[in-house]
Design a binder for these strands. Structure first.
Lengths: 229, 229
DNA sequence: TAGATTGTTAATCGATTAACAATC
DNA sequence: TAGATTGTTAATCGATTAACAATC
């Protein structure tokens, strides 16, 4: 039996669904929809109504029997759960192709994620700006992060430089790392690591494309072992 | 009871672990390691030995009692399962920041994913090249895909253009879509969609950063309802 | 009030872990 | 042969779905 005042851990499966709830509620809000039931959400999101109610009840009782959920209120609650009610300072480490592309993208700012600096080792890049965001030498990184209370470091560096950078970052006040390198980062548990392993994603796609052919092959093997009469 | 010749569906959880197996086996191979046990794999990958054996047995019997797995052989098998034994033709739709960054990146080619064209509507970009990859007008997309037997379309377009592009792509011989737009793509089931929803990933990171504070707040609420004696 | 829909408990389903006979 | 380690069955754990009393 759960004790009052005890918090049960929310499963990763639930957490991964929260952004979907948030974004769809945002759409409904923009369409001036006032209320929504778990069943209506179910139809568009593709999760069962039961699951949606279970998910939300991990964080509180946001609905009302016979009415459903107030769109605006639920949207606000989920934004708080996701920490989107406060803004976050980000820095990009590595001003290569991907680092520059992320710096140029303005979509993160909409949700309060502000990129305030970029760091690189390349002297041809240091001193320049990307969309008003200055590129500083990587030696200044630790000092800058602590001085500016930076929340998130975006890692877009080559994999052989990752270990060294992670070591340096681990000594700062940084709260989270958004990791675009293929390296598995081991760091103290106070710093959250979120991985975007693009190559894994591409391999998964490749698996599914290949799946049909694979099953053919497995089937043939099995037929050899158990020939049909 | 499973019938011979019947294929049981492999769960998504297993599929998502395959790239990790593949990459670590690649490392072992490069280090000239000849054999590896499920227990040794377990230590580095962080999955249980039991799970690793279960996972691999979805696809065949690759090990040998008392010996373990032959690194080179298992690596080859998993590369076949992931479809990495054949090369794949890719096109990038949308030569914006992200599209260009992906085009410049040479890391996909190593695994046989070859970007052979980029498509865009911007007349300032059309006709140019990125790393020898030509940028064509988007009108030529369908013809090009069919003519060149393109396997994968990488979507790096603004969200309001996605629906139209997806409709056009769905008429081609394309096998998979690597979707970097925030749009949920509905398409016929023969075309596989793999999503890279960056903003979801960032929100998940934000959730975890915020988690500590969130729990404090929930705890206080509960204490009000069940005050300590 | 009657109808709708929640929050929550119980049942089911699926994935992970444990255990061990088979066998290299 | 003795020791090691697999493949696989059984047990456990956790997540999803179903059901329904509570209540707006």
């Amino acid at each position: 039996m759960e004790q009052p005042g005890e918090i049960k851990k929310v499963s990763m499966a639930v957490i991964k669904r929260l952004p979907k709830y948030y974004q769809h509620l945002g759409n409904l809000l923009r369409d001036n929809v006032e209320r929504v039931s778990s069943q209506e959400l179910s139809k568009i999101l593709g999760f069962t109504a039961s699951q949606i109610r279970q998910d939300l009840n991990n964080f509180g009782e946001f609905g009302q029997q016979g009415y459903g959920y107030n769109v605006s209120q639920l949207y606000t609650e989920i934004s708080k759960i996701l920490g989107l009610n406060t803004s976050h300072k980000m820095v990009i480490i590595g001003a290569g192709n991907l680092g520059q592309a992320l710096a140029k993208y303005t979509g993160f700012g909409i949700y309060g994620f502000d990129i305030i600096a970029i760091f690189d080792t390349n002297p041809n890049l240091v001193g320049r700006e990307i969309r008003d965001i200055p590129i500083y030498p990587v030696e200044d990184m630790e000092y800058f992060i602590n001085e500016n209370d930076v929340d998130i470091a975006v890692l877009t560096i080559p994999k052989d430089k990752t270990k060294k950078i992670v070591k340096a970052i681990s000594k700062t006040c940084i709260r989270g790392i958004w990791n675009f390198t293929p390296v598995e980062i081991k760091i103290n548990e106070n710093i959250i690591v979120e991985n975007v392993h693009l190559i894994d994603s591409l391999f998964t796609l490749s698996y599914h494309i290949n799946e049909g052919m694979l099953q053919e092959r497995l089937l043939k093997q099995k037929r050899k072992i158990f020939p049909s009469p």
